[in-house]
Design a protein around this nucleic acid. Sequence first.
RNA 1: GACCCGUUCGUCUAGCUUGGCCUAGGACACCUGCCUUUCACGUAGGCAACAGGGGUUCAAAUCCCCUACGGGUCGCCA
Length: 483
Amino acid sequence: MSIRVRFAPSPTGHIHVGNLRTALFNYLFAKNQNGQTILRIEDTDTVRSTLESEELIYKDLDWVGLEFDESPLFEGDYSPYRQSDRLDIYKKYADKLLEDGFAYYCFCSKEELDAEREKAAKESRPPLYNLKCANTSLDEAKKRIANGEKPAIRFRAFKENIIVKDIIHGDIDFPTNSFGDFIIVRPDDMPIYNYVVVVDDALMKISHVIRGDDHLSNTPKQALIFEALGFETPIFAHIPMIVGDDHAKLSKRHGTTSVEQFRDNGYLPEALINYLALLSWSSDDGKEVFSIDELIERFSIKRVSKSAAVFDFDKLNWMNGQHIRLLDSDRLFKECLPYMKSIELLTDEFIEQNIYRLKECLLSVKDSLVTIKDVTQNISVYFKQPDDITSAAKEILELESTKPVLENFIQLIGDDEYLTIDRYKSIMKEIQTTIGVKGKPLYMAVRVGISKSTEGPELDSLTTLIPVKCIKKRIEKVLLIKK
RNA sequence: GACCCGUUCGUCUAGCUUGGCCUAGGACACCUGCCUUUCACGUAGGCAACAGGGGUUCAAAUCCCCUACGGGUCGCCA
């Protein structure tokens, strides 16, 4: 049997990390097993689905690097891949179900059903359909339809128990009287999720259905339909949900949750993917930092745990830092570019002319970045002296030795455009011997002179990547504060 | 309420199938030391968990039962 999996989002907005994790597990499983990945757009809810949202899904998937073998964009052998384009197919199988007696027309009104449900709730019995239309013959129903009535189509729960085979949870036995006969097509002819998903999965030859375990309770209904239609039931794998720190389903109020937001906040796609992979899955040797290819190689659906995972922003931050440290200079530059442009002095022209130096600056702050967004903060010291001096820096400034150190430094710095590392070192040595200041008071004085701060990139980088002219000006300014 | 699912450090998890190697391992966070003439990075340590109760067994995180708690579903949403 060839392995085929699908990711089937509804186009109702940006992809949420929970959905992305589902997409990822499908993808990793398929790639690991040499299977195919299918992206299907589930837009039977015409009220909430939009084409714009569909575009957002493509965009998000593209950013994280998840490519699907078949999708509305790359039609394969099982087109179309958008449910709204498959309506006639659903119609055909609904008719078959009707003919075979696995489904029947239901003329009960929504109001009627709502009242019934309410009544059931009051009497604290399960809100099952009362089977009012269950025995209406197909011929009679057709007559009523000819007379202008608009019925829904209801599926008959035709057996008492159904066993769902799930890789993660094992076999689960559901009594069908816990849900009863259920609607598969609305009176306006729009088919319902639990039904279309079966037709699509069967026709698209999906071998494994990997999805969130919030769908577990729907699965017996779907398994019933697979049987009624004579299709082979796929193997299920219901993966645990991702929850917030309050253990409720992850949602907007927990902070950043959409893929787009993570991108905008300076997270690397490979870091997000890596972090998400570690939610409910772990490698057999405890290693945690992986490239996507390594994840594919190591992924096993059998190592997915059963319990919900709390999304931990701290660990994602750490993971992002790990992946930033893995970036080469070119990629780092590319990722940082949009953020560098937000720094006032860095015009497109300036960036164009200073690529080499900028890359060096980026390299010098790389290890301190948590998100790519942080470059703005970290790198700005190279281009502009901060307006304010930190209190720790002020203490250095108060030192008696600081003034002579700085004055000497400007004097020795020379007229070259930039200081070389050797030149810088010899200057420091010279100051040390002439005024006898060494260690912290010496190095910190220069650091504070340049950046008004005791923190930041290495002094080597600061002194060699800032033009000599600017260093002079900066130190002169700081000397002014001293007076 | 009914039906399902779940429960190991604060968090992510390993271990559970095939009981003993578990004095329960790793990671994030936190704390401490080291490194770095700064912060960060890195590095070496530390803190910290088998939901509870009954069984079975020479031996239980691991097998069985019960309880508690958490979650999901019960739509003419997906």
